[in-house]
């Protein structure tokens, strides 16, 4: 009896470990992979939309500054915005510095304002000098805020890899224990089939539980929401696809594992 309980218990533990390994693997090829994130940013036009938002924000400050909008012409480029977003993304995943250098933007803006003042024969008063300084601060800050919302995250990829290693080792240990208890290799295959089927069912059900909830997510702004919905949908689709394959493999393993028992019957 104890042997039977232990057998079911180990089989359950193996099932959960396989499920955890699937989850960790899907995360490691999605949100824990910076190239995946960059590819998603590109396919969702995030770089272009971030550039547009930054320009819109620049225009907002400029339209109340007494300066002409032409002062912004070519001040920043789409490529520069994309590069700075990538620097920030890289800094999330590695220990490299993710500070955005806005010196060139500020210097260029300052020189353009001085030129505009000269053209208008204006000598700025101390109050105006302060106002110009505040305007430049606002533009630089708007740029920083526009680059991945000025956030500083730290994605611990090494923790995920460590968890995966622990999970794999645990699966091997539990599998050996099951083999030692069950002895018959075909019954062990059936056990593995049960675990695969469990993981498959869970992964498939996950998609149907959450897909309707994430479709209308609206957070921060439309470009971020679109990106988030796309990434989450992709992750759920991956769960569904992997779940379907693992589930079918599980059923096949169960059939193979029970060939002899079924024949006897």
């Amino acid at each position: 009896m104890i042997r039977k309980i232990l057998r079911y218990l180990l089989n359950f533990v193996l099932s959960v470990l396989i499920l955890i390994l699937i989850i960790l693997n899907i995360f490691s090829i999605t949100i824990f992979d910076r190239e995946y994130i960059k590819q998603k940013l590109k396919s969702n036009d995030f770089y272009i939309r971030a550039y547009s938002d930054i320009i819109e924000s620049f225009e907002n400050y400029t339209m109340q500054s007494g300066l002409d909008l032409t002062i912004l012409d070519g001040l920043v480029s789409e490529t520069q915005v994309a590069n700075d977003i990538n620097v920030k993304i890289d800094s999330f995943y590695t220990k490299i510095n993710g500070d955005i250098d806005t010196t060139s933007i500020r210097n260029e803006l300052d020189s353009r304002i001085n030129k505009a003042l000269e053209e208008n024969n204006r000598v700025p008063s101390d109050t105006e000098k302060e106002a110009i300084n505040k305007y430049e601060d606002a533009i630089v800050q708007a740029y920083k805020d526009g680059i991945v919302y000025g956030t500083n995250l730290s994605v611990k990829v090494e923790y995920l890899n460590r968890l995966k290693a622990i999970c794999i080792v645990s699966i091997i240990v539990v599998s050996i224990m099951i083999i030692l208890i069950r002895r018959k290799i075909l019954r062990c295959v059936a056990c593995l089939g049960i675990s695969f089927l469990f993981s498959g069912i869970f992964s498939v059900v996950l998609k149907f539980l959450l897909i309707n909830k994430i479709g209308n997510i609206l957070i921060l702004d439309t470009k971020f929401s679109a990106l988030l919905i796309n990434v989450l949908t992709d992750i759920l689709n991956k769960f569904f696809n992997v779940g379907l394959v693992i589930g079918i493999v599980g059923i096949i393993f169960i059939l193979i594992g029970n060939i002899k028992v079924n024949k006897k019957a």
């Binding site: 359950f12 059936a190 675990s195 869970f202």
Partner: peptide, 19 residues
């Protein structure tokens, strides 16, 4: 066949227990 069905049921029971 009985063994196969019982294994399939076990998988579903595991899902329920896990949830």
């Amino acid at each position: 066949m009985k063994a196969t069905i019982s294994d399939l049921i076990v998988a579903f029971i595991y899902v329920a227990v896990f949830v």
